[in-house]
Structures are given as structure tokens and as C-alpha cells.
Design a binder for these strands. Structure first.
Ligand SMILES: [Mn+2]
Ligand SMILES: [Mn+2]
Length: 274
DNA sequence: GGTTGCT
DNA sequence: AGCAACCAACGCCAA
DNA sequence: TTGGCG
């Protein structure tokens, strides 16, 4: 592997990219160059979804089998054009905001395979603009069974007057997102989600639970509403995941979701076309 | 992955 | 110039 | 305060 770096122009930004031929997904032979290329191609779509959102990165500098770590803080040595917002305790952290294709390329060069997002948008970081229901299946759960549960949950949520959008997580689960006016704080939105999820788990007690502890779940699907808190994040739509197959969190219509047998159908090789 | 500090 | 060390999240709850 | 959890 040639460990050189090379300069490139993305829009009006000059970027130094390193180790472009380094393989970060060994089973799939996917190099850092291909990851950067993916994020460049998906940029017009992805940027719309993460516009104004504070990001959390998951970086895999030594590939998906090497050490990985979350990163929320924008490093001191980031380029001055990379936008950020001070958030968190005492506004201690400079959260990154991606505003242009070059932002995504800069992040990809750091091996930020996964982009996760907070639930609020600039300029109103105190008020989430969606309510998310994160379906977390136990090990070995058949994906079509999660799909069936998601369809039921959708009907249930919409009976409360919300509209539901859905995406695969790129892992084993599903995210249901309900757009909101950024008018209520995190606690209020959490309680609204709880007021929906609790009766849902009571209707399907054998299949679903609100217990986050593994021991208490007993093979049931966790309806994880506990992401709805300030400083918490979910994987962004169209983000890669650091797993074998280079899967992508893929937004789908409900009709499309019905046909999905395996969420690994959506990956770095086909996500751009969709 | 990038930076800093030591040899 | 080369190399080793160091750093890179957070919120909540039960124990 | 720590450990488990996503
Ligand atoms: Mn999940
Ligand atoms: Mn390294």
C-alpha cells in the first residue's frame, strides 16, 4: 500500500487525502478512495438530510476490524471552513456540521465510516425536528419479522396523528422517523414517544419490550425510544456502517420495505442509484 | 488519522 | 527522519 | 461511583 497523500480540489476547498489505497473493508476490498468516492456521489442527497445537524462520527482508522471510536469534537487542526456549533455541557464541544461535499470528503479521509446525527437542526438545537422509534432486534432475529413489526408500529403511531418515514439502519434494525415542528423540547418529545410505545408493547408483549437491559428482553425486540435525548444520536440516512458488506442506512418507502429480505441488500455498491 | 515530543 | 505515545462520546438507570 | 446499554 502506497502510503502517500495527495492534494485534491473539492468545490473551492483544497484537501490533502492520505492512504487512499488502504483497504478499510477487507472482505469487500473497499478502499478509502472508494469510501470518499461514495460520500462524494451521495453528497447531494446526504447533505440535505444532515443540513444544520450536529454530527457524531464513528471512525475506523485501521479498518472495520481495527479499533473504532466515537468522535463528537471538531479537532483544533480542522480546516477553518469546516462549520461547527458549540453544544453540550458548558458548550464544551465543537460539534461538526457538514455543509458541502468537501466537509464529507474531509470526514471520510479521517476514516469516519459512520456519520451519526443529533435530532435537532440549526438554529434551534434545543428542539428535535423528528421523533424516532429505533427497533432493535435480538441476535438472529429474522429481518422480515422486524419489518412486520415496523408496519404494525407505523399504523399505531399514525393513529396518533403523526406521519412515519422508515429506513434500514444498515445493521439489523429499523428506524421509524416522524417529522415534528421544532417546537417541543427533548423531554416532551420523549414522553410523547413513550405514550405511544408503551401501549404498543402492551399490545405485543411477546414480541416487543421497552426494557433496555439485555437480560429483561428475553428475545423480544427493543422499541428504543431512549435515543430521544439531547446529545444522543442515530446513524444518518445514507451513512455507511463499519460492518462486513459496507452496508448503508437506507431510507425506503413503506412498500419497498415490505420487499426487503435482508438489510445488507443496501450497500456502498448500490446505494447511490436508489 | 493526525499531532506532538523524543532521539 | 523515524518512531512511540496520546487522543478521539454521551445520557440514563440499576446495582 | 461503576457498569451496562444503545
Ligand atoms: Mn438501533
Ligand atoms: Mn493509526
Amino acid at each position: 500500500m502506497a502510503k502517500k497523500s495527495q492534494w485534491t480540489l473539492v468545490g473551492k476547498r483544497k484537501l490533502e487525502l492520505s492512504n487512499l489505497e488502504k483497504v478499510l473493508f477487507p472482505e469487500d476490498g473497499v478502499t478509502k478512495a472508494e469510501i470518499i468516492e461514495y460520500y462524494l456521489k451521495i453528497a447531494p442527497t446526504l447533505l440535505q438530510h444532515i443540513k444544520g445537524r450536529a454530527l457524531t462520527l464513528i471512525r475506523f482508522p485501521d479498518g472495520i476490524h481495527g479499533e473504532n471510536f466515537y468522535q463528537k469534537n471538531r479537532p483544533e487542526w480542522a480546516p477553518d471552513w469546516l462549520e461547527f456549533v458549540k453544544l453540550g455541557k458548558e458548550e464544551k464541544k465543537d460539534y461538526i456540521i457538514a455543509t458541502e461535499p468537501a466537509s464529507l470528503v474531509w470526514l471520510a479521509n479521517l476514516a469516519s465510516l459512520e456519520l451519526h446525527q443529533l435530532h435537532s437542526r440549526k438554529p434551534d438545537f434545543e428542539h428535535p425536528d423528528y421523533m424516532v422509534f429505533d427497533l432493535d432486534p435480538p441476535e438472529g432475529y429474522d429481518f422480515p419479522k422486524i419489518v412486520a413489526l415496523a408496519l404494525d408500529l407505523r399504523t399505531f403511531i399514525e393513529s396518533f396523528g403523526y406521519t412515519c418515514f422508515v429506513k434500514t439502519t444498515g445493521g439489523k434494525g429499523i428506524h421509524i422517523c416522524c417529522p415534528l415542528e421544532p417546537k417541543w423540547d427533548f423531554h416532551t418529545v420523549f414522553e410523547a414517544a413513550q405514550a405511544i410505545a408503551l401501549p404498543f408493547t402492551e399490545r405485543f408483549p411477546k414480541e416487543t419490550t421497552l426494557h433496555i437491559k439485555k437480560e429483561a428482553r428475553k428475545g423480544r425486540v427493543l422499541i428504543d425510544i431512549f435515543r430521544i435525548r439531547s446529545g444522543q444520536s442515530i446513524v444518518s440516512p445514507y451513512s455507511l456502517r463499519g460492518r462486513i458488506g459496507a452496508p448503508v442506512s437506507m431510507p425506503l418507502t413503506w412498500d419497498e420495505l415490505t420487499l426487503v429480505k435482508n438489510p445488507r441488500e443496501f450497500n456502498i455498491n448500490n446505494a447511490v442509484d436508489k
